[in-house]
Design a binder for these strands. Structure first.
Lengths: 233, 233
DNA sequence: CGGCATTGTTACAGTTTCGTGACGCATCAT
DNA sequence: ATGATGCGTCACGAAACTGTAACAATGCCG
């Protein structure tokens, strides 16, 4: 499903300005990544498909096929649709425009950027591994399937009837798979701003979820004294 | 936990020209920052690691270990790799600027600079929250791996089940690797303002940690009459 | 070697935290 | 209206965690 990760993360840098490419290459290599480059959209598409990089740094302004187009095409390609993409743009204002187009980049960096900032974003996206997956509007993990826009949950293909709150709680946990969420955090994200709610309420909803989820319940893990998490394995 | 930002941002100024240092110190203090200084590369490295400043002002030309080298070394050190660095350089030459940036500085200022300009850049970097948000959320050292957001500890890749307190204690020690922490200090950082607790409690938790950590236990070092530390080698 | 201070170890009781079932209230379609 | 459904809170018991004290072991000083 998700393309396998390389031991040394492989990063495809797509930019037509040689200076920028070299600066990025230097820093990524120093940070321990393998770097491949492409100077235009066609080359980018070819290399992305052939070499299956773990992450793509994509300049917005490219000759021929521009960055937006490349991004869209990549997102439609099964093999690379899950690969995180960081967009490079010259102007902060462009980000708004890009966001408006909803084309599924995972992060944005405006030029000029500090290498440290870039590396940090790269690290973050690579670490979150499931980056693309968590952004998508469906989540499948083990026996569980969540279709977020349709508000449908199923275990082993069998629909499970969840209330709105239960669904949202499960979604938040599944999207942050592996990471512990405190009750406060969950209240904020699931119940939104309603700080008047008792933290123990979360427990009750967890219980109801567990009850309904059958075999999936064992992935709903309590971390005593901290919060809850959706197990990764 | 992530090393917390100091309430008053602490800035390390590294320069071997006393006049320049004083000028900077005066202006930073006037702007409400705490200032510490180092006159050469070795001192800079030591202080950066021991005092964990929120930002570093680093002169490019230093006796012994020069600024570039210091920058490189700091970037490799997990504890300070996320600390923003501003390079100070006497030469306006573009070459130096690029070199500095490639080595991971976040900004640069050419001498002579106006105090106002310097303060503005300092503020910008501190504000960008870069420091806080980017401090590493995992720690790997020898056989030990700590993933803080996931609340996972593992030794040689095998998960170790730690309670909330144990996890936090270990995290604090690992983050301050090499430095001895007094029991009082640990109580403050791990137990947070709960000064009613007996210092011997720390001992008990250390024991529990050692028991659970197997081969890593040998890095949990007792400094008789002082406290505990996580050994560096 | 002996005495003192400090730390390691063990056991245990008190406390905290969590899962669970029950309850009352609000909403809503019938 | 009324019954069903969802939600938030509460109370209780079980289990896990934590702090402390008491004792053993160790290091340190002369």
């Amino acid at each position: 499903m998700v393309p396998k990760r390389h031991v040394i993360p492989k990063i495809l840098v797509v930019d037509d300005e040689p200076d920028a490419v070299e600066l990025i290459r230097f820093n990524l290599k120093a940070a321990g990544y393998e770097v491949i480059t492409a100077a235009d959209g066609d080359e980018a598409l070819k290399k992305a498909r052939a070499l299956l990089p773990d992450l793509i740094l994509l300049d917005l302004m490219l000759p021929e096929v521009d960055g937006l187009e490349v991004c869209k095409i990549l997102r439609r390609d099964q093999r690379v649709s899950a690969t995180p993409i960081i967009m490079l743009t010259a102007k902060a204002a462009e980000i708004d425009r890009v966001l408006g187009l909803e084309l599924g980049a995972d992060d944005y960096v405006t030029k000029p950027f500090s290498p440290r900032e870039l590396i940090l974003r790269v690290k973050r996206l690579l670490r979150s591994g499931a980056a693309a997956e968590t952004k998508s509007d469906e989540i499948t993990f083990k026996d569980l399937h969540l279709d977020i826009p349709r508000h449908l949950a199923s275990v082993k293909g069998k629909a499970v009837d969840l209330t709105a709150t239960e669904f949202k709680l499960l979604t938040v946990l599944a999207q942050r798979r592996g990471r512990v969420q405190s009750r406060e955090q969950l209240l904020q994200d699931v119940w939104e701003y309603d700080n008047l709610i008792d933290t123990r309420t979360v427990d009750t909803h967890m219980r109801r979820l567990r009850e309904k989820l059958g075999t999936v319940a064992k992935y709903l893990d309590t971390v005593r004294g901290v919060g809850y998490r959706f197990l990764e394995e």
